[in-house]
């Protein structure tokens, strides 16, 4: 494995809110995150709403400052980079958004928006720009004639391709894709996912793929990081995590997702209640309030990520040392049995 491209060390982000004559507690959106992404790697970031996944994406790009820890890109600390250095780094990393409608400026043509990055960084003389825009549009599977049209003339899937072309214009090596397919129709989702896989293949892009869709992550990503309330619950190679989830939350998330495969439906575990408010997280393990396996010790001890099996598969659960996979499988069967009885 080559040297990591992007690393986050003990990264944290607190959002404080409040105003005139009042104080409000801050929201700890991201806690103590360690992450490294190698060139050409696709890492999936999975979690429900409020788990801090979008915040992590923006932290890694340096779009918002970290309140703790640091992010390094190619060995350079983002927070300490000079503005010239930052400009140079900026074009190496790009972002693709969830909502294909708000991610394009409605008042400028698609071609001009794709060219923005080239113009800002002065990458090409202006007469070569149209040819480059044409090439970018072709690369994302659009017709070059699209350059002269406005965003509202395109469908959701096509807009997402345009956004991707804009991101690729500066020839980045790292891409953060924030729920890039969840606003699209099912049949179009698959096309766009395929495009991401192709781009990784042809350009060697490293991608942080943020999603709540486990199916998409499973097929696209090499590694997966599962978040809950801003904390990493489990991480590891996609194969290992999906076939043998070590953390009860990962297991619950996987079993909660509806499935086309009839056989899988027997293993159903329905978590009770809603995720707790990030304003007031539970003590100890933040998942314990909804965890079917919680014991008294979970309330006092914040679990650390500990290795499970081999190949960088780790989970943050104090009961992970117990015979993990069997335990969860047994419990799932027991719960499923009970559900069927009731």
């Amino acid at each position: 494995m080559s040297a990591p491209l992007v690393t986050a060390e003990k990264l944290g982000r607190r959002f404080s809110s409040g105003g005139f004559l009042r104080r409000r507690p801050g929201v700890q959106a991201v806690v103590d995150l360690n992450l490294s992404i190698a060139p050409g790697d696709i890492v999936g970031l999975v979690g429900e709403s409020g788990s801090g996944k979008s915040t992590i994406g923006r932290l890694l790009l340096g779009l918002i400052p970290a309140s703790a820890g640091r992010v390094c890109f190619d060995g350079d600390d983002l927070a300490r980079a000079s503005s010239a250095q930052r400009r140079r780094l900026r074009k190496k990393m790009q972002l693709v958004f969830q909502d294909p409608y708000s991610s394009l400026d409605p008042r400028r043509t698609v071609g001009r928006q794709i060219a923005d990055g080239i113009v800002i960084h002065g990458l090409l003389p202006s007469r070569q720009i149209p040819a480059r825009v044409d090439a970018l549009l072709r690369q994302v599977g659009l017709d070059p004639s699209a350059a002269g049209r406005y965003p509202h003339e395109f469908s959701g899937g096509q807009r997402q391709r345009v956004a991707l072309a804009r991101a690729l214009a500066t020839e980045p090596v790292f891409l953060v894709a924030d729920e890039p397919v969840s606003a699209l129709d099912v049949s179009v989702q698959a096309q766009v996912l395929k495009l991401f896989a192709d781009l990784r293949q042809s350009l060697g892009l490293a991608i942080l793929f943020i999603s709540h869709d486990l199916g998409a992550v499973r097929h696209l990503c090499d590694r997966v990081v599962v978040l809950y309330l801003g904390r990493v619950m489990e991480e590891g190679p996609v194969e290992a995590v999906f076939s043998r989830p070590a953390h009860p939350y990962t297991a619950a998330l996987m079993s909660a997702a509806p499935s086309l495969d009839v056989a899988r439906r027997r293993h159903r575990i329905v978590l009770q209640g809603d995720p707790p408010s990030p304003l007031d997280p539970p003590s100890g393990c933040v998942f314990r309030t909804r965890c079917p396996f919680a014991i008294a010790a979970c309330a006092t001890e914040a679990p650390q990520l500990t290795p499970v099996g081999g190949s960088m598969h780790r989970a943050a659960c104090i009961r992970v040392g117990e015979d993990t996979t069997h335990r969860i499988d047994d419990e799932l069967h027991r719960l499923a049995f009970r559900n069927n009885q009731s």
Partner: peptide
Amino acid sequence: LLGSAPREEGPPPEGIPGS
């Protein structure tokens, strides 16, 4: 449409060309 939905096992989802 069924082929577009990601499954736990099996090949990666196939999209439908066009819109």
